[in-house]
Design a protein around this nucleic acid. Structure first.
Lengths: 238, 238
DNA sequence: CCTCTCTTTATTGTCAACAATATTATCGTT
DNA sequence: AACGATAATATTGTTGACAATAAAGAGAGG
């Protein structure tokens, strides 16, 4: 077992929030991420309150939290709508990821404990094994972020971790859900993860940062190519 | 042109929010940043609602937005408290700034229009002039972020801009308010800004990023030194 | 037939009362 | 006197009703 909070990636500051607002937040969040509420769709407060069996108060609070997570946009006196992830937003997201996770990798190379590094390598071997047995499986995407998640946490920077794991993570999840038909090149990711962990083991912050940045930049490029080819401008509409 | 709201740094998604929640948000936010509500202090909802002449509803919403801005921490059924900026949090903040603003500088070198670059240089000259006439003046701090702000906007990345200017910016302001007794080395900043704008003019993303990162890293180091000296080690424990 | 205005409707913003939980104070026991 | 359990208090969470604003529709005029 890697960590007490490793399989529950969701820490979201609401992991132990038994309050109605908290529960409604995760329910609404998941509904949006899974596409049960379509991108661009308007969030009708009375309707959703009825649907989630809560009053409008907690529902409004949930909406505000999702606004902070950038899953929802809000205009005063008009209402809230689910964000639409056009290609441009995705590319912007990956630029931010590159900057933040690159720094996280550098800090991880400096601050991560030897045990945590060992656990990280164990996790990588697990993914490699799984990938060999069932090639092209779902785990690579979840597992991929598992790996990144451990490095981010290994940075020891709380602000960085919160920004990446509480806010941006759910945006990434939403995007992956919408484009799950595209299977990612998991072999390449595995190789790059291997290089990355080696840099961390060598305690080389600059190399770790460079490798992480290139890793994410390549993912970004591959997304741009895939989406440019496949849709030719006609994928992102609902 | 990217946006028309350039001199009003506060865009905060509430710039034209005439709603009570919006007004309460900025009022409460400024009160916290200026220290009228002390760091670590608890936010008593009935008391603050009375103070701001609003009901608890809008006040609660304001608090939630400030939680998203990381100016306030919230625990279910216990309440909200103003964050305490220990040295550690500040250093973490500057690491995140280094990553994000570094990338912003690189993107600005790629995407900024020639006119915007010209305006940026004009702004720098203005600050230099002001700095010569009244050495060691307040403007350098506000002006410093003005400069950074223009570069961030010049990146053309909306997510990046929002993260830096809507959320982190207010944390920085709060920190500066609390430590206004320390005068920053404005001469050095001016020189480094000069180098930075030159790299942008040359359309050299890598150099621009490097310069911005070093610029912020130096600011971080100078903060660490100043705070370590002045408070003699009794600062970072809670 | 289209367009503009006014009315109607629906939706968001705000409020004050109620319920649930945590904090504090009190009291008894060791 | 110190500690722990229990009751009183204060604060947060939730609810439904009310007010203000925007969207939708009807009707008159061009």
């Amino acid at each position: 077992m890697i960590d007490s909070s490793s399989q529950t990636i969701d820490n979201n500051s609401a992991h132990d929030d038994k309050t109605l607002s908290g529960q409604t937040t995760v329910a609404l969040r998941e509904a949006i991420i899974k596409g049960e509420i379509a991108p661009g769709e308007k969030l009708n407060e009375p309707k959703l309150a009825e649907q989630f069996q809560v009053s409008r108060g907690p529902l409004r609070e949930a909406i505000r939290r999702l606004v902070a997570m950038r899953l929802v946009r809000h205009v005063p006196h008009v209402g809230a709508t689910v964000v639409t992830l056009e290609l441009n937003s995705i590319l912007e997201l990956y630029d931010v990821r590159e900057a933040l996770e690159g720094k996280a990798a550098a800090l991880a190379a400096e601050n991560m404990s030897e045990e945590d590094i060992a656990k990280l390598r164990a996790l990588l071997e697990l993914h490699r094994q799984h990938s060999q047995e069932n090639p092209g499986e779902y785990m690579q995407t979840e597992g991929d972020f598992d790996f990144h998640y451990q490095i981010i946490k290994g940075s020891g920077n709380r602000l960085l971790t919160d920004q990446l794991c509480d806010e941006l993570y759910h945006l990434i999840r939403m995007f992956r859900f919408q484009t799950s038909r595209f299977k990612s090149r998991s072999n390449r990711a595995l190789i790059e993860h291997e290089q990355l962990i080696y840099a961390i083991e060598q305690r080389d912050p600059q190399l770790a940062e460079m490798l992480m940045r290139k890793h994410i930049a390549r993912a970004k490029a591959s997304i741009r190519d895939a989406l440019n080819d496949s849709e030719t401008g006609s994928l992102d509409q609902p």
